[in-house]
Computed example of a mutant assay.
Amino acid sequence: MNTVQLQQAVRAYAATIGIDKIGFTTAAPFRELKNRLKRQQELGYQSGFEEKDLDKRTEPALLLDQAESIIAIAVAYPSKMEDSPKGKKGERRGIFCRASWGMDYHTVLREKLGLLEQFILEQIPTARVRSMVDTGELSDRAIAERAGIGWSAKNCSIITPEFGSYVYLGEMITNIPFVPDVPMEDECGDCTLCIDACPTGALIQGGQLNAQRCIAFLTQTKTPIPEEFRAEIGNRVYGCDTCQTICPKNKKKHNLHQQAFQPEPELAKPLLQPMLTLSNREFKEKFGHISGSWRGKNPIQRNAIIALAHFKDEAAVPELIAMLDKDPRPVIRGTIAWALGQIGTEEGYNAIKEALLKEEDLEVRAELEATLKRV
């Protein structure tokens, strides 16, 4: 089997294992990307989750000896939830972003890439391959763009004509010299809806993101969320979809065909108050199979408290007061101090005054005092 025949066979096999799009590109360095990443670092726009070595992020040959090509894959995920549960007074709900519906996509895409590797090695046993999904050194988006999967949009996502931007990306570096696909033309045009709609102004300009202001990033941090962003988080407990849901290219793109990513409504839109008291074990048992659980329960519980403040949920006040009194985590106590002020009950204010009498953590004290000053 020659390289052209193998490439055709790989495309055909990919479709049989649930890969929605596949593209091929060279393993040449991503020089333009390197310049953009340097600029991101200089501006302080990075999240801190990225690989810090820019050479590894932009030079595939450093990651696989004799690298010749990169295979890019895309797997679509749903934008619509059937039987979405509705919150009501006293039973408010949060929401996980669409990229955290169903099974953790890292697991699903790694499995598909593993099958693809196995298929290639059966045809060419001497082939060299290395796959990665999201957490690898390379930029998934830059590879997908160059491999013709879609265009790199102003909302910092890859947009495909078939599935919109609701796609997970992965890639495989190999020493097989596949014929590269042609990149797509950018179809964003003059549209700036995503930039205009971003709740925190994180989209600085088309294709440039200040991760430090991005709600999707902020909901994954383990430190207190800066006060200027709290009101904008709303009831999001993980991630943010605003720049996707506003995009005209995503209109009527529901992508309900991947069974692994079908949302479990009670997990995708969970009741907020019961989340506050989950133990580590309970959290892992309930949410451990979704991608939004990767940072553990603490950020999710902090975000749930912010969401309860968003709803001004007076029914949650007794639970919040109990946690303010006994929870060992300063980030949680500080967030509760702010939340009780937002909900605005006399019971909450009295609890804040009592907490000040014994609170020793300086940051928590600052939150308590700031809340009383606002009153």
Score class of each variant (00 low, 15 high):
3 T>W: 04
4 V>A: 10
8 Q>S: 10
9 A>V: 00
12 A>F: 05
12 A>D: 09
13 Y>G: 00
26 T>W: 08
29 P>M: 07
38 K>H: 09
43 L>D: 03
53 D>G: 07
55 D>G: 00
56 K>V: 01
57 R>N: 00
58 T>L: 09
61 A>R: 10
65 D>L: 14
66 Q>Y: 11
66 Q>W: 01
68 E>N: 00
71 I>H: 11
72 A>I: 12
74 A>R: 07
78 P>H: 08
81 M>W: 09
81 M>R: 02
83 D>V: 00
84 S>A: 14
88 K>C: 04
90 G>R: 10
92 R>W: 14
92 R>D: 11
94 G>R: 04
95 I>M: 14
101 W>Y: 12
103 M>T: 13
108 V>Y: 02
118 Q>F: 12
120 I>S: 06
123 Q>R: 14
125 P>F: 06
133 V>C: 08
136 G>F: 01
136 G>Y: 06
137 E>Q: 12
149 I>F: 13
153 A>D: 01
153 A>T: 07
166 Y>F: 15
167 V>T: 04
171 E>A: 05
172 M>Y: 07
176 I>W: 10
177 P>N: 12
177 P>A: 07
177 P>M: 08
178 F>G: 03
178 F>P: 02
180 P>D: 06
185 E>S: 13
187 E>S: 11
191 C>G: 03
191 C>L: 07
193 L>H: 11
194 C>E: 06
196 D>V: 13
202 A>I: 12
203 L>E: 08
205 Q>C: 13
206 G>T: 04
209 L>S: 04
211 A>R: 06
223 T>K: 15
227 E>T: 14
227 E>N: 14
229 F>G: 04
236 R>Q: 09
245 T>W: 09
249 K>I: 04
249 K>E: 13
250 N>D: 12
251 K>S: 11
256 L>D: 13
261 F>R: 05
263 P>F: 03
263 P>W: 11
272 L>V: 04
274 P>S: 13
276 L>K: 04
283 F>S: 05
291 S>K: 12
296 G>I: 08
299 P>L: 05
299 P>K: 01
301 Q>Y: 04
302 R>I: 08
303 N>C: 06
304 A>D: 02
307 A>V: 10
311 F>V: 05
314 E>G: 05
318 P>Q: 13
321 I>W: 11
322 A>Y: 07
322 A>V: 00
342 Q>Y: 01
345 T>M: 00
347 E>I: 03
353 K>L: 14
354 E>F: 05
357 L>S: 15
359 E>I: 04
364 V>D: 01
364 V>I: 06
369 E>A: 13
370 A>V: 01
